[in-house]
Simulated scan of single mutants.
Amino acid sequence: MDEDLRERLRTAAASHRPDRARMLARIERGMAEEPPARPARAPRTPMPWLRVVGATAAVCGVLTAGAFAVTSAGREEPAGGQRVAAGPASPAPTTPSTARGAALPAGDGPLWSDGSLNPNSNSYWAQSEVTVKTTQPLSELTVELRIALNGGVNTTGSWRSLPQEDFVASAREEDGFLVYRWTLKPGRSVPTGTHSFAGQYNHAEGARDTGRDDYTAQARAAGGTTSVGGGFTDTH
Rank of each mutant, 00 (worst) to 15 (best):
M1Y: 04
E3K: 15
E3H: 10
D4T: 13
D4A: 15
L5Y: 07
R6D: 07
R6A: 12
E7Q: 15
L9R: 02
R10F: 13
H16Q: 07
H16A: 12
H16L: 15
R17Y: 05
D19E: 14
R20Y: 10
A21G: 12
M23N: 12
L24W: 07
R26V: 10
R26D: 11
R26P: 00
R29A: 15
G30N: 14
G30M: 15
E33N: 10
E34K: 14
P35L: 15
P36D: 15
A37D: 15
A40D: 15
A40K: 14
A40I: 09
R41W: 04
A42L: 14
A42M: 10
V52F: 10
A55P: 02
A55K: 11
A57S: 11
A57Y: 02
C60L: 13
C60S: 10
V62Y: 04
A65L: 11
A65V: 12
G66D: 03
A67C: 04
F68P: 00
V70W: 00
S72C: 00
G74T: 08
E77R: 07
E77Y: 13
P78L: 07
P78I: 06
G80L: 03
G80C: 03
Q82R: 09
R83S: 08
A85R: 12
A85V: 14
A85G: 09
A86L: 14
P88L: 04
S90M: 05
S90Y: 06
A92K: 02
T94C: 05
T94W: 09
T94G: 12
T95Y: 10
S97F: 08
A103F: 06
A103Q: 02
D108V: 05
S113M: 09
L117E: 13
P119Q: 05
P119K: 02
N120M: 09
S123H: 06
W125Q: 01
W125Y: 08
E129L: 11
E129R: 12
V130W: 13
V130N: 14
T131R: 15
T134I: 08
T134K: 03
P137Y: 01
S139A: 06
E140T: 05
E140R: 11
E144F: 00
L145F: 00
R146L: 02
I147H: 01
N150S: 14
N154A: 08
N154Y: 12
G157A: 02
W159C: 00
S161G: 02
Q164W: 00
D166P: 01
F167Q: 09
V168K: 10
V179R: 12
R181K: 11
L184E: 01
K185M: 12
K185H: 03
R188A: 06
V190T: 04
V190Q: 01
P191F: 01
S196M: 00
S196C: 00
S196L: 00
G199P: 00
Q200Y: 02
Q200D: 06
E205C: 10
D209V: 04
T210H: 13
R212F: 10
D214Q: 09
D214A: 09
A217L: 07
A217E: 09
A217C: 10
A219R: 05
A222N: 11
T226M: 12
V228R: 13
G231K: 04
T233M: 06
T233E: 07
D234F: 08
